[in-house]
């Protein structure tokens, strides 16, 4: 019924905000939430693309993306627990003993 450009812009904007969050927030959990935000942008993009062609493949791709998001969320939280047990902090900067 309408053009998909606004959806692509919305997706790009969500993705950009996610990128910014990933780069600038120092809390591990917020960093990971930012990647979820980026996935959200991709979901919007995919659904719009599917609309463009008039079939549900894009929606299914987006559903599969939810699976990846869930997979990564599960792992991320497991990892955060491990890291928190070691250092007692969620600061990403505290994990920088290797460099150069």
């Amino acid at each position: 019924m309408n053009d998909i450009a606004p959806y692509i812009f919305l997706g790009a904007l969500l993705f950009a905000i996610g990128l910014v969050g990933f780069l600038s927030r120092r809390n591990l959990i917020v960093i990971f939430l930012s990647t979820e935000l980026m996935f959200q942008g991709v979901v919007v993009n995919l659904v719009a693309m599917g609309r463009l062609h008039g079939h549900v493949d894009g929606q299914i791709f987006a559903l599969f993306l939810l699976v990846i998001a869930a997979v990564e969320a599960g792992l991320a939280l497991g990892l955060v627990v491990l890291l928190y047990r070691r250092k007692g902090t969620l600061d990403a900067e505290s994990w920088s003993s290797m460099w150069g």
Binding site: F15, T35, G41, V42, N45, H53, F61, E72
Partner: peptide, 19 residues
Amino acid sequence: FLGALSAAVMVYGFSFLYG
């Protein structure tokens, strides 16, 4: 974490290819 970032970038690209 960086892997998740790159996966997001990659799948964003895939979404355009699909489009």
